[in-house]
Design a protein around this nucleic acid. Structure first.
Lengths: 217, 217
DNA sequence: GTCTATACATCGATAGAC
DNA sequence: GTCTATCGATGTATAGAC
């Protein structure tokens, strides 16, 4: 909770933020090189020209460092998602969104592990950091809604499909694109299934409640 | 590689195997309690009435212990899959197979992490242990073939769906069944998609090559 | 804020006696 | 095989100078 999140305008605060950014960058580097759980605070301090005890001016514990990395990772993800120009049409946009997610996962495996898997013993994101995760979930939910998909079960199924693509890509073809390029087919499969179930429930029950959706492809 | 896998019949070998089994069981217990990466060899030794250095008579390093746990976990999975009575009909059997997998994952989260995610820095399964993983993959492939699914892309997509269900179940509803009970709908979605793509390719090309499959549901 | 210095507990791993 | 003793490294933390 020592981490400075608020924007500081004075010179001292600026320098501190710059140093903090360097620490974070070095932490990501070490995580990629040695594994997420193998970050050494002495190594980390050496890489930013500090002594190990001085790191405690920036975070209170190693778990706090992970929390800062967790928040940093989600900010990166939100940046990527928001920076990407959205395609015309909700469904093509959804395909792009999924592909972006799988690409993001394979671009930095340890980041994916920290953000989406429970791999560090004892680590739980703070409320503030978790809020960023919820922001992301909200974006995904909006994209699904725009594509005409609703219902908790559908959301769960969709999240499983995306998580599975990321998981397999990271675990079995790190750095490749074997599952990245399945983003399109996977979304198509998912949406076709939603449509199919909506159609069959419409024939059974006299309640054509499904919202009309734009055609695609 | 110190681990004794071969069956030994003499009394000394038997005692050693029993001790080894106790060590493995204690290791799983500690992994579940403290996290996979947080297993302490001193704790482990104490639980089997040994001193920490004595453990090195059973494995050469901590990574070797993880390798033994990896093999043990896959043997458990193979046992579960093979013990389960297969339903009549390839497709209901496939649903059961997937449900079994997700259940297996949520039954022991750290086991799932060790078997299916790259979470321990520096750990890679040995050739012998990985052979068990391939055995499992072969079973899954056979079930898909029996259900009339073929093609590398289909296998990849299927593996992603299963992995995603497990992943979400473990990460977001540990011990529950929120994604376990999506096994049926997920397999249905997948098979419907395969059928749909086969049908459309059959209309385009005059090659009705897809094998006739039994109906289901 | 950063440093030196130091402390403590814990960790994986090794040497060598028995 | 099991032990005692020990090693170097780690994470964690504190005190106190500047």
């Amino acid at each position: 909770m020592t981490t400075i999140e608020a924007t500081t305008t004075d010179r001292r605060g600026q320098r501190r933020e710059e140093k903090w950014a360097k620490i974070l960058a070095a932490a990501w580097f070490l995580a990629q090189r040695d594994g997420l759980a193998a970050i050494s605070l002495r190594d980390l301090a050496g890489r930013v020209e500090l002594r190990q005890p001085s790191l405690y001016a920036y975070f209170e514990s190693k778990l706090d460092l992970y929390d800062a990395m967790f928040a940093d990772g989600y900010r990166q993800l939100l940046d990527v998602v928001r920076a990407h120009p959205s395609k015309t049409g909700a469904r093509p946009a959804l395909v792009d969104f999924v592909r972006l997610n799988v690409q993001f996962a394979t671009d930095d495996i340890v980041r994916f592990q920290l953000l989406f898997q429970r791999t560090i013993p004892g680590f739980e994101p703070s409320t503030a950091s978790y809020a960023l995760a919820l922001e992301f979930v909200a974006i995904a939910g909006d994209m699904l809604t725009a594509a005409g998909v609703s219902g908790a079960e559908n959301l769960d199924l969709f999240s499983a499909v995306v998580a599975g693509l990321c998981d397999q890509q990271v675990a079995n073809d790190p750095g490749g694109d074997r599952w990245v390029c399945l983003a399109g087919p996977a979304v198509e499969m998912f949406l076709a299934d939603v449509d199919r179930r909506n159609a069959s429930s419409a024939t059974r029950a006299p309640k054509p409640k499904q919202p009309s959706r734009e055609k695609q492809r």
